[in-house]
Design a protein around this nucleic acid. Structure first.
Lengths: 190, 190
DNA sequence: TCGATTTGTTTCGACTCGATACCAAATGCA
DNA sequence: TGCATTTGGTATCGAGTCGAAACAAATCGA
């Protein structure tokens, strides 16, 4: 059956990437999950840089993520900032050192080269995988963590000016490209 | 850049599958890596069901794999059989219980359903991922672990009769579909 | 025959991860 | 307002993964 083949393929690719991530993080004393956390924090928006959001993104328990963050903070790769509105909430901000580690470590050079051999630079692959991920997340009742600009709450207000229909906050063009934990895809045919 | 997007996609899919595997293995007290080992042993040929081959397949160290096998043996999911030729070598054979666990656990139902939403049942996806995996394995100097029948040592000898050009062993039609650690893809254009 | 290589095991320590309990702040509800 | 519930985050514990290193045994090769 095709499902079996695809499952094994994705699993093996996942393992390979993990192995490479392990190697990439080793010189900094970081595990794969640490690099993933850093990368998420680099590309998420200001509503989504909290331990709770990261927990959902990684699909781990909050206790586990709390430990991860402790380590990253000790290494000086991120700092915590209390929220001014909700005093339970903490925002996670990458330091310069954190950004530097990411820049150096990801994505691995090998991966880029392997990709260049694919037809169309992997555009079709991108599309299929995106769809597959979307379906799996929906089946698991998981959030999609898509880019702000592709959300159903995203509103255009003229040239280069946007707004989030959920929070009513104005959004810049840069904002619109960041990942959001409240992201909901636009349901086609509606 | 497209490489970044694809990298993140594959990583997230990998994480999702791991999470599902974790859940699937939980009732049996198995970790993701245990299920992966069982699945490999189910689909590899008689040259490749050894600890060393499994170690290469999983990309772990032999010490780690040895621990994994100890656990699987204790649970009665596989048994070890000494090789008659080389007394250092041990063959790993799934028990009925091992096969039963696999049948029940993989691939997850959710995955199959998500897949059914893809155009062409994911045939194009399959092709792209296969190529990507091949490129990555080549870049990492890793073995491909492809199906025997797609190997450059595979020889046809008439209707339903085959032979391995490396070992000179005769091969059945079933053999030709199993994964082999000596597998080498046919280089196109030669 | 003797060293080098290969196959597999054992042991150790660092680390992940889930489970559980816990605390504080916010929210819902009467 | 008052109190239970929910939410966000932390701390602690134990099971288990994983790599590194040391080790034993069989095989290979000069």
């Amino acid at each position: 059956m095709a499902a079996d083949r695809l499952y094994v393929l994705l699993e093996r690719l996942g393992n390979l990437l993990r192995t490479e991530e392990r190697a990439a993080g080793l010189p900094h004393g970081l595990q794969p999950v640490h690099l993933q956390a850093l990368r998420y924090l680099q590309s998420c928006n200001r509503y989504s840089n909290t331990p709770a959001a990261l927990t959902e993104y990684l699909g781990l328990t909050k206790g586990t993520v709390s430990q991860t963050l402790l380590l990253l903070e000790e290494k000086g790769l991120l700092r915590k900032q209390a929220d001014t509105e909700d005093r339970r909430v903490i925002h996670l901000l990458l330091t310069e050192a954190g950004r530097a580690v990411l820049k150096q470590a990801l994505p691995p050079e090998l991966f880029k080269r392997a990709l260049s051999g694919l037809p169309g630079d992997g555009a079709a692959l991108d599309e299929s995988l995106t769809e597959l991920l979307r379906a799996l997340q929906a089946a698991n009742a998981q959030r999609s963590f898509g880019a702000c600009g592709t959300c159903k709450h995203f509103q255009r207000e003229g040239s280069g000016r946007f707004r989030c229909g959920l929070t009513q906050d104005p959004l810049s063009r840069e904002d619109s490209q960041l990942l959001c934990r409240e992201h909901e895809g636009i349901t086609p045919g509606h």
